[in-house]
Design a protein around this nucleic acid. Structure first.
Length: 271
DNA sequence: AAACGTTACAACCGCCCATAG
DNA sequence: ACTATGGGCGGTTGTAACGTT
């Protein structure tokens, strides 16, 4: 056991020594050109040979990442996730958990890093919005959330790897996610977040408005959206608070067929 | 105009796993 | 069995761009 660990450490040290002589940081246009030329010649593989041939002072891993996230053709770099893409991400995240590569495979032109970043920003945004909404607004909204959420600090938004089987908006059970005190955060089940999207016309945008800007009161929500958003949120989630299952007891929604088809799609991130 | 805060994105790290030689 | 490599993932950091004060 210890020997194995020792060997592992040795390997890692060796690797680290090698990697310590590599270039890091922002990629230059010349490096991109070299990388593109290599891919053109040999295809998107043999990443480590790029360095061993002295073409670039980058690790194979770094080269691969650069190619996958920036250089491979047909990437939608620089354009925001559309509502449709957002819907897909929400649904697939609910289904697969944080399997970003798998989710990204269903979105043309998006990489796992894109999806991860998008999700992470979205979570932060939601946390901020919900905190603002529940902490500061009218007594009505405070009471609406009051039973479920106590927010001394911005709520921690999290989803579980596997879909949860209880209510959509809930406090976390102390057994499943140990170190956190129940009142410290709300756990948004994937289905709750997805639930905001199960209506084709009901998206994050609908509830909270576009993320395009602050509206003067320190949050990203136009004032009239606060009420509308809360109402919609409660309409959506409130009806599900008794349990996240569908009629047949399945969870999440029994729309697997849709995703089975998606599963057959080729992954753009694999070659 | 400058300072400050927020957001989105790029890139990295560390860990893990699978596979091939 | 061991090693190198590719790949996936979660977490984190740095920064440019943008908005607000």
């Amino acid at each position: 056991m210890e020997a194995a660990t020792g060997k592992k450490k040795k390997t890692k040290k060796k690797r680290k020594d090698v990697e310590s002589r590599v270039r890091k940081g922002t990629w230059k246009a010349e490096e991109d050109q070299v990388l593109l030329k290599h891919v053109e010649q040999y295809g998107p593989r043999e990443w480590s040979s790029i360095r061993s041939k002295g073409l670039l002072q980058r690790t194979g891993k770094s080269c691969r990442l650069r190619w996958v996230n920036k250089l491979q053709p047909n990437l939608k770099t620089g354009c925001k996730f559309t509502e449709e893409e957002e819907r897909v991400v929400i649904e697939l995240q609910a289904r697969y958990g944080n399997k970003w590569a798998r989710i990204a495979a269903h979105l043309t032109g998006r990489t796992d890093n894109d999806v991860k970043n998008f999700w992470s920003s979205r979570q932060k945004r939601l946390a901020r919005i919900l905190c603002t909404t529940s902490c500061s607004s009218s007594p009505a909204s405070a009471s609406a959330y009051g039973n479920l959420i106590s927010l001394p600090e911005p709520p921690m938004l999290r989803t579980s790897e596997t879909p949860v089987e209880t209510g959509d908006l809930m406090t976390e059970s102390s057994s499943s996610f140990p170190p956190k005190i129940e009142e410290d955060f709300i756990a948004f089940s994937p289905e709750m977040l997805a639930g905001l999207g199960d209506d084709p016309n009901f998206l994050f945008f609908d509830v909270f408005g576009s993320a395009a800007g602050d509206h003067g009161d320190g949050d990203m929500i136009p004032d009239d959206h606060h009420q509308l958003g809360e109402q919609k949120l409660l309409e959506k989630t409130g009806s599900k608070l008794g349990g996240g299952e569908n009629e047949d007891g399945d969870f999440p929604a029994d729309d697997d067929d849709v995703f089975d088809e998606l599963d057959d799609l080729p992954s753009h991130s694999k070659w």
